[in-house]
Design a protein around this nucleic acid. Structure first.
Lengths: 189, 189
DNA sequence: CGAATTCTGTAACGAACAGTCAAGAAAAGG
DNA sequence: CCTTTTCTTGACTGTTCGTTACAGAATTCG
């Protein structure tokens, strides 16, 4: 009924996500976001309301595009050890491939924004909980938890994943990260 | 030969450390630091040169006051499992005690600043490496690594510690963190 | 008691900040 | 074609940013 939006909303959010991931919420200015997305200031505010609104959209996109597919893969019910092994090594590959020094948006948001922004907190908690659930269900279903609660093992895996992101930010060393993944995997029964 | 400094430098750096830890480097303004330290703008610049200078002093203080004592404790050569168990549970206590939602300055600096500031990077790397060394030496000396390289186990422990800080930022739940610590401890032979 | 030196407090700097707004451009319905 | 509605653009708001400059206070040495 009126003029159509000229920019691709998803592409803009994707670009914003990378910008936020690289320089954090406070470290990324509106001007940075205008340049990263190629969308004008006014349009950005019309579409997302505020800097926080765009940040939340970026966090949601991270969940939809990176966390949910992982959960889907876990729901396929393949052998846990192989699955986790693959997930951790893929993580190492991703980190080592582009010499990436930046933690993922999830870790960055958890550390920088979750303590200050309830909206971010609830999103990060929900995503982490979903991943935990998927891990726990899988471990429980395959009886691989030994005498431990599958949920504790799932939380441990989440801790390892987050910890590896931090380690990568300090030093993105493929060999070291691979070895860490192997040790963690050894904790699964 | 001249007027003496009125403020306590160490106390100022300590206060700045807490401020940076709470709101990050970009999220903490000079005005915030003036209020947190009780030191005037001019004096702060005279003493530390710049915001980055004060941040580096805070990172150094974190190393001296929190990382080095930990390393000293590891050098005492007590049984590894008890030592690590104690360290992880102390960590949980610290997190749970004040319902702390903020990751330590080390994790915060690693995620937010290390990718952008070489000075921060070299400091964080050095501190992490020292802690790794201490863990590795201890594990190696007590022959507790099984068929693994003690250094890999040490890196894994650092990953767990960093990961627990992130998990705490998402949800500072004592029971969950305790369980995570127990699982990680199980990886030590 | 000066002279020299270093600190403190405040005012000010230009730049960058997040956010707003009005005017024009584009599309759809009548 | 003309109205209506939405989107785009870019100038603009007041505020806050990190940093500097400077005057005055305090301390030590001669």
């Amino acid at each position: 009924m009126a003029r159509a939006r000229e920019f691709d909303t998803e592409a803009a959010v994707e670009a914003a996500m990378w910008a936020f991931r690289r320089t954090g919420f406070e470290g990324t200015s509106i001007q940075d976001l205008v340049e990263a997305t190629g969308v004008g200031r006014g349009s950005l505010y019309a579409a997302f309301g505020s800097k926080e609104g765009l940040y939340l959209a970026a966090v949601d996109r991270y969940r939809d595009r990176y966390a949910l597919p992982l959960i889907e893969e876990l729901r396929r019910g393949l052998p846990v050890r192989d699955l986790v092994h693959g997930i951790l090594l893929d993580l190492v590959d991703e980190i080592a491939a582009d010499g990436n020094r930046h933690a993922c948006l999830m870790v960055s948001a958890a550390v920088e924004r979750a303590p200050h922004d309830p909206e971010v907190r609830v999103r990060i908690r929900a995503t982490t909980a979903s991943l935990e659930d998927a891990f726990a269900d899988l471990i429980g279903a395959q009886g691989l938890s030994g005498d431990r609660d599958p949920r504790d093992l799932a939380r441990f895996l989440m801790t390892t994943i987050h910890g590896m992101r931090v380690m990568a930010a300090i030093n993105p060393d493929r060999a070291a990260l691979t070895a860490i993944a192997e040790v963690a995997l050894g904790c699964l029964a």
